[in-house]
Write a protein that binds this DNA or RNA. Structure first.
Lengths: 224, 224
DNA sequence: TAAGTTACGATAGTAATACTATTATATTTG
DNA sequence: CAAATATAATAGTATTACTATCGTAACTTA
């Protein structure tokens, strides 16, 4: 798995960046260090100027890769969803039984990332934390419709529809497969956030609890 | 109901504002016009300077009511949750049967606000739209823990725990009442957002569909 | 009714943000 | 080695997110 992952490149919509950050050392440093900085200081406090100082490069050079920090966030979250989709497909592909397949899928999308696996310059543990804290901000904007049209969110949408399809395979007569799929994905991020900041609003204490909660929710709903 | 609402004041934590906007005509205008502006231009583009121009007042005067626009957002969302809690309690108080009570609660928190009811200077329809688009931004910040400690989110938390308690009353052995309650509240906002911007990720087309989806989800889960 | 208090508006100013433009200097590639 | 390209350095702009000061209007109380 590790070796395989090393040779895979997550394909990100070209409209999200000005110049592909994977195409140069500087680009990779931008992505690498921005993950560290955003996870530490939060997206609001993060600026290209600070990033430039941190990587010993110039603010204006960063603008040659990303138009603004919003697009960098869309890039990072897209990368995450692409990476997660890869994990999902890899782990569920060989499972024939549809219920078992869905259970495995839920496990993968609701767990938190525990180890930094393979891609040299991307720390997936921190990126997972960024997604929990900042993912909503990538689409809760006034530009969401135009950016959606440009394909900024295809990877996220593909994740949801994959899970939606798995739900349909388990119970073809369930009328809310898309809603349930999007609830799992977004709800899982939310439960992890609550676990860290609003303990009274969730029953999830350990990381596996979110998996247990959604597994139970989906199983009982589809087997009713 | 309308008359009753007119005489009720939603109690907001005093730490959220510098000066109570309910205490003066200018304060009310700030709240009133900020709702119109944020719902129209989005929270990111909204500034106190623009608001000042719009209400024919000075930027510095607005700072006498709210320290910054983030606190104004916390104020607006708190007001919304307080208002919704009022609706919830009012509508469910007299229901004895716990399942019926929970069903009514779900209906109230998952529907969108259709009419501007009673509070003169607050447009609840637009405020509901703001909550759908911006609510997450009020807590997805680096300051969430300190603000939580100061009680900024009590009204939101009270809503979740009320619903959590209703879930417990229906099925005391269900182990995820808090998580399910928070999923309903946050998930409902998300489904409405998807309905407006990512149609393929939800089965909700009309406003009532979100109610139907969550009603079905909760009922089957708790009756398993 | 005079004096005190508070509220608000007007103006000015600051530091930081979010860029854009230009030019110089490396580095790569053909 | 020349040409093309990438990056760094510097400068500059408009806007944001404030803070501070001051004058005056309005309301309050003695």
């Amino acid at each position: 798995m590790e070796r395989l992952l090393k040779s895979i490149k997550i394909a990100i919509n070209e409209k999200i960046y000005v110049k592909d950050p994977e195409s140069s050392a500087l680009g990779k440093r931008i992505v690498e260090e921005s993950i560290l900085m955003i996870s530490e200081m939060g997206f609001e406090s993060f600026t290209f100027k600070k990033l430039g100082i941190e990587i010993g490069s110039n603010e204006s050079s960063i603008y040659r890769y990303f138009e603004n920090k919003h697009k960098l966030l869309v890039y990072l979250t897209s990368w995450y969803w692409g990476w997660l989709e890869y994990q999902l497909v890899f782990a569920t592909n060989s499972i024939a039984d549809s219920s078992e397949k869905l259970a495995k899928a839920i496990e993968i999308v609701t767990r938190t990332t525990a180890e930094d696996s393979a891609f040299s310059h991307i720390n997936e543990i921190l990126l997972n934390k960024i997604v929990i804290n900042e993912n909503s901000k990538s689409f809760l904007t006034k530009e969401v419709d135009s950016e959606n049209k440009e394909g900024y969110f295809v990877l996220y949408k593909r994740m949801v529809s994959r899970i939606g399809q798995m739900i349909k395979d388990v119970n073809p007569s369930y009328p809310f497969s898309a809603s349930l799929a999007s609830t799992i994905l977004e709800g899982s991020l939310h439960q992890h956030f609550l676990k860290d900041h609003f303990g009274t609003l969730t029953d999830c204490r350990k990381n596996e609890d979110a998996t247990r909660y959604f597994l139970h929710l989906v199983t009982t709903t589809l087997n009713a």
